[in-house]
C-alpha cells in the first residue's frame, strides 16, 4: 500500500475519533452548565472543555474568556480551529477522498454524507436544543462510520491503519480528560459526598460512555480512584488507556505479520502494554497521577511519530 494512502487512512481514523470526542466534551459541558450557579465556578466548565481539547492557546488568543457561545462555536464549527468538529469532518473527508479506492462505498458515504449534511447546517441559528441535537447527530455519524468500517472494510493493512489512527487518538483523548480533571480524582481531594463532585465524576464517565460500565464493573457508588482505575487500567473498558494501548499493539502486530517485518513501533507498543498491565491504580496515585498522565501523553505522541516514520513517510 502507498505510504500516503496509509497516512490518509490513519488520519481519517484519528479525525473521526476526534470529532466524536469533541461532541462528547461539549455535551458534558452543557450538562455541567445546567447546574445552579452556586455549585460551580461560572463558566468553569467551558474553560475545561477548551483545556481538554488542547486548544487553549489558540482559543485565548482569539476570544479571551470562555463563554458558552464562543466555546460552542470554537469547538464545533470554527474553521480556524483545526480540531473543531467541522474541521475534523472536513479533514476526515479530504483524507477519505484522497483514498477513495481504499474505502468501501459504505465508509465513503458515511463520511461524505456527514460532510454534505454539515454544509447545510446554520450554526448561528442553533438554540441550545438544536445544538444538543447536532451533537447527538454527530455521535450518530461516528457510530455509522464505525459500523461501516466494521461491517464492510477488508481486514487488510489499510484497516489496520484506520484502526491504529482511531486507537492513538482515543488514547490521547482519554488521557486529556484525565489530565484536566485529575485533581477531582485524587483521593485526598475527596470532599465528603459533595454533590458537585459527584456530578463532575459522573459527567466524566458519561463523556466516555462509561457510566453504566462503571456500575457493572465496580458495583459501588462512584469513587474517584475507581473512576481513574476504570479509565486507565480496565482492560474491558473500550476507552481505557490500557485498552487503547492493546488496540495499538494488536493492529501493529497485524501489520508486522502482513509485511513479515517487526519494527520499532511494534516494540514500543508492546512495551507500553507491558508497563500498563503490570500497574495497580494505587501505584499510579503514589507516584503521582498528574506526572503519570503527562508521561503517557508524551509516550503516545512518540508512538504516533514512530508509526509515521516506519510506515507513513
Amino acid at each position: 500500500m502507498l505510504s500516503r494512502t496509509a497516512d490518509s487512512l490513519y488520519w481519517m481514523g484519528r479525525y473521526m475519533e476526534r470529532a466524536d470526542f469533541n461532541a462528547r466534551i461539549l455535551e458534558a459541558a452543557m450538562r455541567l452548565a445546567s447546574l445552579p450557579a452556586d455549585d460551580v465556578t461560572p463558566g468553569g466548565e467551558w474553560d475545561s472543555a477548551i483545556a481538554i481539547s488542547d486548544v487553549g492557546e489558540a482559543f485565548n488568543a482569539l476570544h479571551g474568556a470562555a463563554t458558552e457561545a464562543n466555546v460552542r462555536d470554537y469547538l464545533a464549527f470554527d474553521a480556524n480551529n483545526p480540531s473543531s468538529i467541522r474541521a475534523c469532518l472536513r479533514q476526515a473527508r479530504s483524507n477519505a477522498r484522497a483514498v477513495r479506492t481504499a474505502l468501501t462505498p459504505e465508509v465513503w458515504e458515511a463520511i461524505n454524507d456527514a460532510w454534505n449534511e454539515m454544509g447545510r447546517m446554520v450554526p448561528a441559528a442553533m438554540d441550545m436544543e438544536a445544538f444538543a441535537r447536532f451533537l447527538e447527530w454527530l455521535k450518530g455519524v461516528a457510530r455509522a462510520y464505525d459500523g461501516a468500517v466494521h461491517r464492510t472494510q477488508l481486514r487488510n493493512d489499510g484497516y489496520a491503519f484506520l484502526r491504529l489512527g482511531a486507537a492513538v487518538e482515543r488514547a490521547d483523548n482519554t488521557a486529556r480528560i484525565l489530565d484536566v480533571k485529575y485533581h477531582l480524582l485524587l483521593p485526598d481531594n475527596e470532599p465528603v459526598g459533595g454533590g458537585l463532585d459527584y456530578f463532575q465524576w459522573s459527567t466524566i464517565l458519561r463523556e466516555v460512555s462509561a457510566l453504566t460500565a462503571y456500575r457493572w464493573v465496580y458495583r459501588e457508588s462512584i469513587k474517584p480512584w475507581l473512576v481513574a482505575d476504570l479509565l486507565i487500567l480496565n482492560r474491558q473498558m473500550p476507552r481505557s488507556l490500557l485498552n487503547c494501548c492493546e488496540d495499538i499493539a494488536l493492529h501493529l502486530d497485524r501489520l508486522a505479520s502482513t509485511y513479515s517485518r517487526r519494527g520499532p513501533a511494534q516494540k514500543m507498543a508492546t512495551a507500553a502494554v507491558g508497563r500498563l498491565s503490570g500497574l495497580r491504580i494505587e501505584q499510579i496515585f503514589q507516584s503521582g497521577l498528574h506526572e503519570f498522565i503527562t508521561r503517557f501523553i508524551a509516550e503516545n505522541a512518540r508512538i504516533s511519530t514512530v508509526i509515521a516514520e516506519q510506515y507513513l513517510l
Partner: peptide, 22 residues
C-alpha cells in the same frame, strides 16, 4: 492499480519507485 501523486514516487538507481508501507 495504485493512484499516486508525484510525492509518492522517487527515482533511485535509474528506476522509478513508489513509497509503500513495505
Amino acid at each position: 492499480v495504485e493512484l499516486v501523486e508525484g510525492s509518492d514516487l522517487f527515482v533511485q538507481d535509474c528506476r522509478v519507485h513508489m513509497r509503500t508501507t513495505e
